[in-house]
Nucleic acid binder design. Sequence first.
DNA 1: AAACCTCATGATATAATATAACATTACATA
DNA 2: TATGTAATGTTATATTATATCATGAGGTTT
Lengths: 139, 139
Amino acid sequence: MKNIEEYCKDKNIKLTPVRHKVLELLQNEKSGLGAYRILDLLREAGFNSQPPVAYRALDFLVEHGFVHKIESQNSFVACTDPGVHHSPVFMICKKCESVSEAPTFETASNISDALMATGFNVEQTIIEAEGVCSTCSEQ
Amino acid sequence: MKNIEEYCKDKNIKLTPVRHKVLELLQNEKSGLGAYRILDLLREAGFNSQPPVAYRALDFLVEHGFVHKIESQNSFVACTDPGVHHSPVFMICKKCESVSEAPTFETASNISDALMATGFNVEQTIIEAEGVCSTCSEQ
DNA sequence: AAACCTCATGATATAATATAACATTACATA
DNA sequence: TATGTAATGTTATATTATATCATGAGGTTT
Ligand SMILES: [Zn+2]
Ligand SMILES: [Zn+2]
Ligand SMILES: [Zn+2]
Ligand SMILES: [Zn+2]
């Protein structure tokens, strides 16, 4: 969070209170949060709680790479390596519902390269793996 | 379609009229169709058009591997290699909106292997690449 | 045939996710 | 002060998806 605050200050990006709060909420969760769950939590924290409030904050955070959307869940997670451009691979545990970004091996770029070879020009990849995390596997 | 009809007959899977129609609609489209678009088309074709009708047919078709859901679009596409279990990689063109399954190189299994090495046990992967297809690139 | 079971469909309602549109405010700076 | 821009407030509505209970169509068992 400190890093992000500094990054925003440096780049003159406005991490307003509601944006800061949404990011904080996501950073405190290891599973994804839906927009309406975030909205509830914002309300509890005394913020305005109409849907556009949450979606605007999320749009901002996603746009700047501080948060990712998990497409298969319509949920959002804080990025674990913000500020660095990357193509994340998510590991979604069916048991504990945790969502984590895989350490980046070259998966996304491998896919891009392979698809490029077929003539398709990749701009962005969405990679989500569902399964069971190491912690849950041990049990 | 003929193949699927035979496959269903063999395995005693019931490809009922509404399921058949939904599959046909998807096979005639090169882009993904949303459930409510499908519902409209069903209505035009004289079918009952309440939401559960479309969702039930889609659930059935997805479950049997005849159709895939495109998570980033909340849309559905007909599988181009049905009956064979696979982990598809989708190429989604921003310009013409076409959705195609990439010829299977071992991408999904590579990812699975790499994640397995970190302790995560992959059961299913969702891979969607957004970009520009070869046809649209040429223009 | 009658009873039963199972799966599919019909029908109504509602939940969950997301955006449109326009008004207002805050703040930088000319 | 005036003016432009980005952010927020507010209301309404669009889009996607599921819950629930009733009805029907086919087989199987008795
Ligand atoms: Zn990230
Ligand atoms: Zn787990
Ligand atoms: Zn397929
Ligand atoms: Zn194209």
